[in-house]
Design a protein around this nucleic acid. Structure first.
Lengths: 250, 250
DNA sequence: CGCCTAATTGAACTTGTTCAAGAACTGTGG
DNA sequence: CCACAGTTCTTGAACAAGTTCAATTAGGCG
């Protein structure tokens, strides 16, 4: 059994990055006290008056909407450096909840608007973040509208792997702090389907479980192909050959 | 057989509105020549250098992404007043194509940035539009992740009905300029499923076909309930009673 | 009026869901 | 440190919603 090269995960995304590295917007929050949230605690609820904006210092947040009969859709997971509560509405249009223990800083909306609006360096930065968020939302629409369950899970793992490798934890176990239910509600699937596919990916040797909340990506190229990112690989004969070879790793 | 009141469609959305009505951003485009696109013509392709921004003067555009093996996802339909090509990337990340005959105006990105960035009235307007776009994207994620085929089609019709009624064509035939394939690719369904559900809605008297590209919404309240907008109706005993009554219109 | 594409309709099938156990991790307390 | 309890996760079998494939019908435009 072999191990695929890790480079496959490298990407040229301009991710928010750890706080401080080119994150001018962090300056708006820097003087605020840190607040702490235990897993499961809500930072705010859908419908609350949208009085504040938050920046995550540490931990992971899930952002979701609920429709009628308890169906939940997680629209995103937010990581250190990300902003929460951006919206020009009177009320938040989603709930934000801690997945792990979370530390964050808060500023009032008026303070934030004032400070960003007055700064010619901060403005484009905020704008760029909104664009990134929009891009992510569109990718998610593609995933939800047209990808199979396996492609969804593979895409999800890949996204997480890329974020992690961008943040230097390049090697070993990849943290999956959220539960299977969170993943399901993010991917538009059920718990059971997510579980079955994780199992299948494991038994095929694409990933390896490392406890319930961490995995190792053993075959990043294979994962990219399974994610159905028509990108390049789909038409690249080398990658395709590679995939054929990788189909039977055991 | 009765007809439900039309008020059900009224909404307090701050939609872009027809050009001119509170659309300061139109001023950026006003001096540009109108360009015309025939149905099916692309305004730009995913991957093109993102050199320009556009404002729709007339007609409807579809914006979509393609993955690998020709699967298409329409991420939105754009109407007069809407901006196209907003994005901080070097390249467009989706294709924009005329659904109907379209008239639009174009400005270079640098010109747009310059003009908007220099204006304290335009900036928040642009920001508000991005927020609206983000909100729409999130609603679409909810639709795609957790709604049934019938709920998706009902939601879609409702959205169109609301846009139309906001624009004063309050009464009769609602234009559906896109094909069934467009609807399917927007709703994450197949042509056949969309067709079946349109037929079912018609036979139940919720809507009435008026040629292939127009319908009349006969029972707006029923449509709202079918759309599964947990909003209020789900818990409002009156609306629920109304829906029970309306289940058997024939 | 007639052709051509788009839309409808039916039947078989597939993917993912639902329902129902059972297994495994986490963390708590003895 | 181990055992227990509670939850989360996995696994299987039956089911259902939507897809696929294959005609058929209906619009719309020349």
């Amino acid at each position: 059994m072999y191990s695929e090269p890790m480079m496959a995960l490298a990407r040229q995304d301009h991710t928010p990055g750890e706080i401080g590295s080119g994150d001018g917007l962090a300056s708006v929050f820097r003087r605020q006290a840190e607040e702490r949230f235990e897993p499961g605690a809500a930072v705010f609820w859908e419908g609350d008056a949208a009085a504040h904006l938050f920046q995550i210092i540490e931990g992971v947040l899930r952002v979701y909407k609920i429709i009628g009969d308890g169906r939940r859709v997680i629209t995103g997971f937010l990581y250190p450096g990300d902003l929460v509560g951006l919206s020009q509405r009177r009320c938040y249009l989603y709930t934000a909840e801690a997945v792990t223990r979370v530390k964050l800083r808060r500023v009032t909306r008026s303070r934030f608007d004032e400070e960003v609006n007055g700064s010619p360096t901060l403005r484009p930065e905020l704008f760029a973040r909104l664009s990134d968020e929009m891009e992510a939302a569109q990718d998610q629409m593609v995933l939800l509208a047209r990808k199979s369950a396996e492609e969804r899970v593979a895409s999800f793992l890949l996204t997480i792997a890329r974020r992690a490798s961008a943040h230097m934890n390049n090697q070993r176990p990849l943290e999956l702090p959220m539960t299977r239910l969170d993943m399901a509600d993010y991917l538009g699937l059920t718990i059971e389907t997510v579980s079955r596919i994780m199992t299948r990916l494991t038994s095929r040797g694409v990933i390896a479980a490392s406890g319930r909340h961490a995995i190792v990506v053993r075959q990043p190229l294979k994962l990219e192909i399974l994610a159905g990112e028509g990108d390049d690989s789909a038409h690249d004969p080398i990658a395709v050959a590679y995939s054929r070879q990788a189909v039977w790793p055991n």
